[in-house]
Amino acid sequence: MWSAARRVVGLMVLATMLAILSSSHAAAELEIPTLTGRVVDKAGILSDATEATLSAKIAAHEKASSDQIVIVTLPDLMGRPIEDWGLMLGRGWGIGQQGKDNGIIFLVAPNDRELRIEVGYGLEGSLPDATANEIIQSDVIPHFKQGDMEAGVIAGLDGILAALGGSYQPAAQPIVGSGSEFSNAVDTAVPILFFVAFAGIALLTSLRRRWDKKRNRYIWYVAHSSGSSSGSSSFGRSSGGFSGGGGSFGGGGASGKW
């Protein structure tokens, strides 16, 4: 009798385990480095002092705006496009605040001689692809070409922060006139984008409320979480001080090579 009961209990445990297994599809992907802070210098191109300065700058900006920026250097892209890494790191760590998606990954792969600025959904307005490209081409790459990695990363972060503050000016501008013209366009575009974003959010919220009443589903919420749903919580989030706020990314930004 007892053996029969034990066998049944064993079956039950097995069934439970199967249920758990079938509900969580194990994601065997590339290993994502641990989010050890706002600067994750895996490639070891930054001195401790520079790292501290960069972290402090980012922290100050985050305090003022809630935007999250993470600087990552990788020794090896493992043959994957840098765009894949930007997306994986951004979504895996959940950089940016949930719902605002205001995260940025500034990714440098010194040995592959590639870099990328990955921009979260919520910051695509203040840091459009063209501006990210401008920062890469005219602020960062000139330093990298001279072999000064630290100066390039610092200039890149300054460019990103300036763009988020709405006051970005490309560093080395060969044609004098077009620089101010460009920033004028940015100056007028930013308030308009803010207004459009605000109106869009208001509309979406009211739509969502109506949907929720009709039937208990979250239609547009899913679009934001669909990418990070496959195991974001399992990635190495840091325990010490800094962690992602749950923001998501949609592939915005720009890449460059030198």
């Binding site: 063209a130 490209n133 720009a254």
Partner: peptide, 20 residues
């Protein structure tokens, strides 16, 4: 300048399409 901007936008959009 105009073409460089458009090129960056197009590259960014192609990447967004790939992600979507």
């Amino acid at each position: 300048e105009g073409f460089k901007t458009l090129q960056a936008q197009l590259e960014g959009t192609e990447n967004r399409i790939a992600v979507a």
